[in-house]
């Protein structure tokens, strides 16, 4: 029994962390129309950043600054934001497909940098030597995992509320206006390039937050954690859940992560031994089919975007 619960806690923690990432992507794609094909670069920047800033001293690569955990996490987010700022300045003038390709390239470059620059982040061995916060007080067992899950859950809810308010704010309105008609927005004195950059950075900081939590959860990050697979999974979650809808983003994260985990389990249990080697590939085919099916039959996702209808009696804000 405790085994099942502890597995559920483990599952829910991972799903919640991924849900935060999907929320970040939703701000970029769902609300702003920015096709970020390099999700893992920002997720990874947050994970690496947090572990390097908050970790114990390391031989041979950067790190061991042992910062107070919240500062390390904020630092990871800031690094993700910084990467987004640079990438955004260089690529945001590109339109959908080109932006997707350019950001995908950035993510591959990021992975390769992490894999090869040993002095930076340990290369293929990754970054270890991270003490999970409050571990001394709570130990390593079930209590700790419950505690960590609750912290992640609170952060997920806070992120959700923040984004809901952002989308309903004048800034959110501006995002929708620019997505709908850029020239008209420009002629009203809006600067689409700047607004898009802000949305891109904000979304990437949230991706970095998810990455930081992910790194904290495993107390380890390596180039294996920033493979294009993860970008693909996070996109699947958003598309299935419903781009433009924050609840859909969270729902999609739990659903796809559930399906991913369940299919992995089912394959390892029931598939013939010879097929087991290919479990990962089969999972990809399944997820790929789900995405294609969704795009064909339910392109707006399970919870489609709700366009805010009215804002009663509010005076225009300055």
């Amino acid at each position: 029994m405790i085994g099942v619960i502890s597995y559920l806690v483990f599952f829910a923690t991972t799903a919640s962390i991924l849900a935060i990432a999907v929320l970040g992507l939703n701000l970029q794609w769902g609300n702003t129309g920015l096709f970020n094909g390099g999700v893992v670069a920002f997720f990874g920047a947050g994970a690496y950043g947090t572990l390097i800033l908050g970790g114990t001293p390391q031989a041979g690569h950067l790190g061991g600054y042992g910062l107070f955990y919240p500062l390390a996490l904020l630092g990871g987010m800031a690094i993700a934001g910084l990467v987004a700022w640079i990438v955004g300045l260089l690529t945001l003038r590109l339109r959908h497909d080109y932006l997707a390709i350019a950001t995908f390239g950035v993510a591959v470059a990021f992975e390769n940098l992490m894999r090869n620059a040993e002095w930076l982040a340990g290369g293929a061995k990754g970054v270890r030597g991270f003490e999970r916060p409050l571990r001394d007080a709570l130990g390593d067992g079930f209590t700790y995992n419950i505690f960590f899950f609750l912290v992640v859950l609170v952060i997920l809810i806070a992120t959700y509320l923040f984004l809901e308010r952002l989308v309903a704010s004048p800034f959110g309105r501006l995002l929708r206006a620019i997505r709908e008609d850029e020239e008209a927005a420009q002629s009203l004195g809006k600067n689409p390039a700047r607004v898009r950059l802000m949305a891109f950075i904000t979304g990437s900081v949230i991706l970095g937050l998810a990455g930081g939590l992910y790194g904290t959860f495993y107390a380890f990050v390596s180039p294996q954690d920033v493979l294009p697979t993860l970008t693909f999974q996070i996109w699947a979650m958003l598309i299935v859940g419903g781009a433009g809808n924050n609840r859909g983003a969270i729902f999609g994260a739990f659903l796809i992560w559930g399906a991913w985990t369940a299919s992995g389990w089912a394959l390892s249990r029931f598939a013939p031994i010879e097929a087991q080697l290919y479990t990962g590939s089969v999972q990809f085919i399944l997820i790929g089919s789900v995405i294609v099916g969704m795009l064909m039959w339910r392109p707006h996702g399970l919870l489609p975007e709700r366009l805010v209808v009215s804002q009663r009696g509010k005076t225009p804000s300055a």
Binding site: R173, A177, L188
Partner: peptide, 13 residues
């Protein structure tokens, strides 16, 4: 105009 926004939101913008 921005069709998906309300008239008021258009003006506020």
């Amino acid at each position: 105009i921005f069709r998906s926004l309300t008239i008021r939101q258009n003006l506020d913008l």
